[in-house]
Nucleic acid binder design. Structure first.
Lengths: 248, 248
DNA sequence: GACCAAAACTAACCTATGTCATCACGTTTA
DNA sequence: TAAACGTGATGACATAGGTTAGTTTTGGTC
């Protein structure tokens, strides 16, 4: 079940079994990709989109001097460039950060979904709007937070998203990013990211190693980041049945 | 014709006469709004969306200290909170900047469009993705440009969008924003925006007065801003017939 | 045409972050 | 074995932009 994580726990847009099967059948191919490989260049004409199954991917815009600004980081379950379906050509590059497994969905199949299953179509639309909501949180991060707040905010966000994907227990998660990646996410230099990480470590908020993040004090980290997860549209009471889940 | 400017000149998503009529009939009400009035608060449950006909609107996120980060500025023709249709609740506020005229479209009507006219549905989706593309350009602006670059970039963008809406001749346009508005857009203080505007003026790039922007040297302004309008998805050869238009 | 509030503007000073240069460490390649 | 390289770490110094505290200008309104 490759689409298992897609829209999981998303408020008002969880797929029913039928819709999931339909999406699953739209997959043309499963592909594995090496780390740091570019899938899409800005301006390419596209006729398929990519659902991320495993690993981390990014989207970024290059500036004149070869520096880049990341505009999104994607975790398993994300439909990385679904927006290429209506747009046909993108304003940014898409690349893997770590090694990754992806599912390829041709736009033809999406045409059929839009024709035959408007409700599933609405949910696909929804998923691209969550990406936009995350863009807005990133704008807040870059526009209003200082360096420590920015890094803390990104780590809170990633923790929340990975929890929803079942890839973090809320305290520790694997993340294959370098300090330079973090600097391109947070609009800082890698030197300063290094200082910020030391600060977070020495103050007992969180430890970042290039493949494991450990959150030591979630409450203080959230406060420092002014992090409010509402923009992720994660259902507080996931409909997934669990033997340990207790009704409120 | 209230929807006249919606998706005008947009590459691959211009409405045909039939679609435009259909959208026009989805309007429930036309309303005029005073300047600086809030239409939607973050978290509100929404059952309608707002198409901006005249004036300027904004979307913003408040921080803990009451400071705000604007995440979007809307010009006439924008479907300001169409994303509330799939999302149902927003992660930010929506407000007018100037006095404004808007058209209200109930989500019920959009349900019908999605059911009966998947191609029009795809174009509505497209329009929300342009907003996302603009978010990404703003991320680039905040993450990679210095203060002068940020203000210059915003002015280039706004000029391009207003040209497409027929509200700028490419050199001069009305814009009812204060320097404090600019600072909330660009992640700066109003004091520093003032310094930046003086710089732009003294260097012959552009003059900003709180209601008229005059671009003195478009080429140098674009270069200073590293501005590339591709992300606006404006058709270079608008299909609108004009008696003065010459085929390339 | 006097009054008021909002916006624009300015100067003096401060600090967060960038810049540059260097070193240490671990892994891949020769 | 070492050479080359990517990543992380750190210190000295430079600067863009923030902060504070005003003054001036503008534009609406009585």
């Amino acid at each position: 079940m490759f689409t298992e994580r897609f829209l999981r726990d998303k408020r008002g847009a969880v797929l029913d079994a039928d819709e999931r099967a339909c999406l699953e059948q739209s997959i043309r191919e499963i592909r594995t990709l090496p780390p740091r490989s570019t899938l899409v260049h800005a301006g390419d004409q596209l006729s398929q989109s990519t659902l991320l199954i495993e690993g981390f991917m990014s989207r970024y815009i290059d500036d004149r001097n070869g520096l880049r600004q990341l505009v999104a980081v994607h975790v398993p379950g994300d439909f990385v460039d679904l927006h290429a379906y209506p747009l046909k050509t993108l304003d940014h590059d898409v690349a893997t950060m770590t090694a990754a497994t992806v599912a390829i969905v041709p736009h033809r199949a999406l045409d059929a979904i839009l024709e035959d299953r408007p409700q599933l179509g609405r949910k696909l639309w929804f998923s691209t709007l969550i990406d936009a909501a995350i863009h807005r949180a990133w704008l807040f991060r870059l526009g209003r937070l200082d360096a420590v707040g920015r890094v803390a905010h990104f780590l809170c966000e990633t923790n929340a998203r990975l929890m929803s994907a079942g890839l973090s227990d809320g305290r520790r998660f694997a993340l294959g990013l370098t300090q330079t990646d973090l600097s391109e996410i947070c609009g800082l230099t890698n030197v300063h990211v290094n200082r910020v990480l030391r600060h977070l470590r020495e103050n007992g908020l969180c430890v970042f190693r290039s493949s494991l993040v450990e959150i030591l004090d979630p409450e203080r980290l959230v406060a420092r980041a002014q992090f409010d997860p509402a923009y992720l549209y994660i259902d507080p009471q996931p409909p997934r049945p669990s033997p340990f889940q207790v009704e409120a």
